[in-house]
């Protein structure tokens, strides 16, 4: 480790962990304002709700058992379904894009990747709003479809599950492209050439060579899209209707509208459980360093 070498050559810095203390204020901040609040949510999820919306500190499983109610089950199931659909759409769009970028001239690759990432870094609220304009009753999509003669009267697109999935796919497509790009870039083109030379069909080249060899990237990309999709709030809130609620909306609803904090906390921890399972899967399957942070 480089820093140890420095420490050895400088007598004053013999005590090599002297500067470890530099980490303390930042760590303390994260413990106070990240870890403690999460533990508080966990504690409240086992408490009960008072008559006027306050918290009564009595241990109970009731909040988690309440989640078994079909109403909550439906929201949970449709969240999983929307997130899965989103992941599939991102894969179908992202794989060809990642492939083309990875096989384009080397000097173009950083530029193209930047173009893919740039929208992700812009205001999510605003980008979601853009879809409201496009999908409205008299929005651009309906105008185009009418002009092309594909439909005779405007479709109801906004405030539907379709709009939610489109919005999610739009928001998280960049997460799919980055790990896939890394995987395709590592795939030796000679192997694909060899498959062609051996008269493999297109389908065989794809399913027997390209997909298996880029599997870590595929799994990584899918998980990276799934995680923010399942926990989203803005997209279903703006583009979805009352019937396309997702877990994030349920949490907000329980906290701010119903003011049932214990139940809201229990929903939060179910969501956290799903996300953590996906994170663990990600670290098991994909090699570290393929994460979205590398592109940040």
């Amino acid at each position: 480790m480089p820093s140890d070498d420095v420490a050895h050559t400088i007598p004053a810095a013999q005590d090599s962990c002297r500067s470890c203390w530099l980490a303390a204020p930042g760590l303390l901040w994260m413990i106070l304002f990240f870890l403690v609040p999460l533990l508080l949510v966990l504690a409240i999820s086992f408490a009960s709700r008072g008559t006027y919306g306050g918290i009564v500190w009595e241990f109970t499983w009731a909040n988690y058992l309440d989640l078994l109610h079909p109403l909550y089950g439906k929201i949970l199931a449709q969240s999983l379904w929307y997130a899965t659909l989103t992941t599939a759409i991102c894969f179908l769009l992202g794989f060809p894009l990642a492939y083309v970028i990875a096989r384009s001239p080397a000097r173009w690759q950083p530029v193209l990747l930047l173009l893919v990432m740039l929208p992700f870094w812009t205001n999510f609220l605003v980008r979601t709003y853009a879809w409201m304009i496009l999908l409205r009753h008299d929005g651009l999509v309906n105008h185009l479809l009418l002009a092309l003669g594909l439909i005779t009267k405007p479709l109801e697109l906004l405030y539907t599950p379709t709009a939610v999935v489109i919005g999610l796919a739009y928001g998280y497509l960049p997460f799919m492209v980055l790990p896939l790009y890394v995987a395709v870039e590592r795939l030796d083109p000679v192997l694909v050439e060899a498959a062609w030379d051996l008269y493999a069909s297109r389908w065989a080249v794809l399913t027997r060579v390209v997909v298996p060899l880029t599997m870590p990237g595929i799994v990584g990309g899918c998980i990276l899209v799934f995680i923010p999709s399942i926990g989203s709030f803005i997209t279903p809130d703006l583009l979805g209707g009352a019937r396309s609620m997702m877990i994030g909306n349920l949490i907000q609803h329980e906290y701010l509208v119903v003011r049932d904090w214990p139940l809201g906390s229990a929903v939060s921890f179910v969501l956290m459980g799903i996300v953590m399972a996906a994170v663990v899967l990600y670290y098991r399957q994909a090699s570290p360093g393929d994460g979205p942070l590398e592109g940040r």
Partner: peptide
């Protein structure tokens, strides 16, 4: 972790 959860916490 979902941002909504961080906000709530």
């Amino acid at each position: 972790i979902p941002e909504v959860m961080m906000g709530v916490a």
